[in-house]
Design a protein around this nucleic acid. Structure first.
Lengths: 326, 326
DNA sequence: CAGGTATGATTAAACGATTTACCCCGGCGG
DNA sequence: CCGCCGGGGTAAATCGTTTAATCATACCTG
C-alpha cells in the first residue's frame, strides 16, 4: 500500500495539515519541521494520490490530446513532442483519436472533459469548426484558422520550396496536392503561388482530381519541377514518372513536405520541408500551463519549416547522402 | 458547473445514496424511483465526477499505455486500436513514450502508477526485461518473450512469406533485417529459416552490419529473392538494386513487413505482411478488463500476419493495383 | 504588566461519489 | 397481540488531500 499523508503525519507526530503545508510550501511551517517532513516523505517514497488531490483542488493534472488520426504519419511526431513537454510540466496526457464517424471529434472532446482534464490540445480534423470547450485549449492547425495557437508555417514553407526551385533554375512548376479540402495543403500551395518570381509560372493540380494527368500535361508543355504538398504525394508521382522514362532530378525536380520516414531512403532521396514538432509541442504546452497558472498566454506562434535539400532537386550532380535532423 | 449527485437528489427530494444506488443498480431501489432518477440524471446531463469516484472506489478508469517510440510507424496503429477498444470498455488511455535515455521505460511506468492507472499496456523496448508492475498489465511483444499477452505472429509471418516466394519459384533467398538486436526481427527471420523447403537455401544479413554488400554478393551467386523484416529495409535496398540495374520483380523479388504507408505506393508496389492491429488491441484490452473485473484472463494470443501480395514479388506479369485492407 | 502581534501548528470542513449499517413501516405467522 | 421479516430508503462514514479558521505560545511594546 502506498504511504498516505497521514502516515507521514503519524510517523512524525504532527498533523496532516502541517505535512501538507510543509510539502507544498503553503501555510506556516517551521524550517525544521519542513525538513523533517521532506526527509520522512521521501524515506517512505510518498507521492500525493491523484484522486484526493483532484477532488479537493478540482485539478486533475491531466491534459487531453485530440488528434484526427494517429495513423497519419504526420501526427505521431507531434504527439510525442506534446507528451514529452507535458510530462516535464507535470501533466499527464490522455489521448483520443477522432478517426471515424462524423462528430467523433466533439464526442472525443466531451469524453475528455468528462474525465476531468484540465485543458485540451486539439489538432482539428480538416476544416471542422468546433464549439469552444469550457476549459483552456490550444489549437494546432494552420496559421490561417482563427483561434490558432501554434502551427507550422505552411505558407512560408511553400514559399521556401519555390525559392529553392527558382535558385535551381526552374521557372515552370507544377504544384500538386492530394485534395484541396485540406486547409494545410491549401496553405502550402498558396505559399508557393505567392512567391513565384518574375517570369515563373505554375499549374496547380490535385491528386484526387486527375492530378497525375494534369501533371504530365504540364511537363509535356515544358514544366521542369513538381512541388507537392506531401512526401506521400511525391512518392505517388514518382512511380508514373519513372515508368514514363522521365528522370528525377535530371529532367524534372520533385519535392515533398514533412520529411516522412521514407523521404531520406527512397531513390532519389526526396527534398522536403519539415517543421520542428518539438517547438510546436513546446509552445502548445507552454500556452496551456500559462493559462492554467493564471499567467498571460503567449501570443500565437508560427513555427518555420526548414528545407531539407536532397537529391530529388539536385542540380545534375550525383545524389548525395543526407542525415535526418531530429 | 457540472451537476452533482446531490443536485439530482435535491431535485427529486431523495437522498444521494438512493440516487447512486439507482444509477448503478446496487442496493435496493424501487423500480419507480430508479426510473425517475435516470430521467432526471440525463435531463441534467449528469456524469459522475472521476475524482470523487476514484477516491472512493480506488479505480481511476484509466489505463496506461507505454510505447517505445511513437514516431516509429509501427506503433501508432496499435496505439489507435488500443485507444479505441479501451474507450468502448470505458477506460481512458494515458500515454507515455519511453523514447530517450536508458531507464525511461521504468520511469514512465512509475509515473503512470503514480497517476493511479488501473492497469498498463506495455510494448517493451527491444529486449528489455521489466520488473513486473503492481497492477494488471498486458505485454505486447513477440510470442517468444515470456509473459507475453498478445502479439503478432512474427514467426508465422516469416514462414508465410517464404512459402509465398517458394510458390513463385524462388529457391535461393536472401533474408535481411535491420539489426539482430530486435527480438521482433529475429523472430521474423527465424520463421523464414524454419520453413525453407527442400532444396531451398538462404543467406542472412543485417543492414547494420554491411548487409547490402552481403545481399549483392548473394545475388551475384544466384539468389533471386530478398525477404526483408521491414518495409523500410526493403525500400532501403531497392535504391541500390535499381542503381545496379537489377530489376524488381523481373530479376529479383523483394518483400517487406508491416505494410507501412508507402508500401502500396512505391514502385514496384511492395509485397508485405501485416498483423491486424485491431485484433491485438482488442485482445490486450479484453485481457485487462477481464482481470480488472475479476474474471479469468484469456490465454495469450498470437495474431496471424496476413500476406499482401503486390508487384514486387509478382511473376513477370504486369504490376497490378492492390487495395489496402483496413 | 496588559494587550497586541507574529509564529507555528492544529482542527475541522470541505471536495463528490460509494457503501455500510441502520431505520421505518406494513404484512404475516404464530 | 407480539415478534419477525423484507422491501424501500436514508444517515453517516469513508476515500486522501487541501485550506480556511482557530488556537496556543512567546515575544514585543508602550
Amino acid at each position: 500500500m502506498q504511504p498516505k499523508l497521514k502516515d507521514i503525519a503519524n510517523a512524525l507526530g504532527v498533523s496532516p495539515a502541517s505535512v501538507s503545508n510543509a510539502l507544498r510550501g503553503t501555510g506556516r511551517v517551521s524550517a525544521d519541521l519542513a525538513e523533517r517532513v521532506r526527509a520522512e516523505a521521501d524515506r517512505l517514497g510518498y507521492r500525493p494520490g491523484p484522486a484526493g488531490r483532484a477532488l479537493r483542488t478540482g485539478r486533475s493534472q491531466m491534459l487531453g490530446l485530440i488528434l484526427p488520426d494517429l495513423s497519419n504519419p504526420l501526427f505521431p511526431r507531434m504527439a510525442q513532442a506534446i507528451q514529452r513537454h507535458s510530462e516535464t510540466a507535470g501533466y499527464g496526457i490522455l489521448i483520443a483519436d477522432s478517426h471515424g464517424e462524423r462528430g467523433a471529434q466533439e464526442e472525443a472532446i466531451a469524453r475528455m472533459l468528462q474525465r476531468g482534464v484540465d485543458a485540451l490540445v486539439i489538432i482539428p480534423r480538416r476544416g471542422t469548426v468546433l464549439q469552444t470547450p469550457p476549459v483552456p485549449h490550444a489549437l494546432i492547425d494552420t496559421p490561417s484558422t482563427p483561434g490558432n495557437t501554434v502551427s507550422a508555417d505552411h505558407r512560408g514553407g511553400g514559399a521556401t520550396i519555390v525559392r529553392h526551385l527558382a535558385e535551381r533554375g526552374h521557372s515552370r512548376l507544377v504544384l500538386i496536392g492530394d485534395s484541396d479540402a485540406s486547409p494545410v495543403q491549401r496553405d502550402r500551395i498558396a505559399g508557393m503561388r505567392e512567391s513565384l518570381g518574375d517570369g515563373m509560372t505554375a499549374t496547380t493540380a490535385w491528386l484526387a482530381e486527375d492530378g497525375i494527368a494534369t501533371c504530365f500535361d504540364a511537363i509535356g508543355r515544358g514544366a521542369t519541377a513538381i512541388a507537392t504538398t506531401s512526401d506521400l504525394v511525391a512518392l505517388q508521382i514518382l512511380g508514373p514518372l519513372n515508368e514514363a522514362g522521365i528522370e528525377v532530378p535530371e529532367q524534372v525536380a520533385l519535392s515533398g513536405f514533412d520529411d516522412l520516414v521514407f523521404a531520406s531512403v527512397m531513390r532519389p532521396a526526396l527534398t522536403t520541408l519539415v517543421a520542428d514538432a518539438n517547438a510546436i509541442g513546446c509552445h502548445a504546452i507552454a500556452t496551456l500551463t500559462a493559462i492554467l497558472e493564471g499567467r498571460p498566454a503567449p501570443p500565437p506562434m508560427r513555427v518555420p519549416m526548414t528545407l531539407i535539400p536532397r537529391a530529388s532537386t539536385a542540380l545534375r550532380t550525383k545524389p548525395r547522402q543526407e542525415t535526418i535532423p531530429c
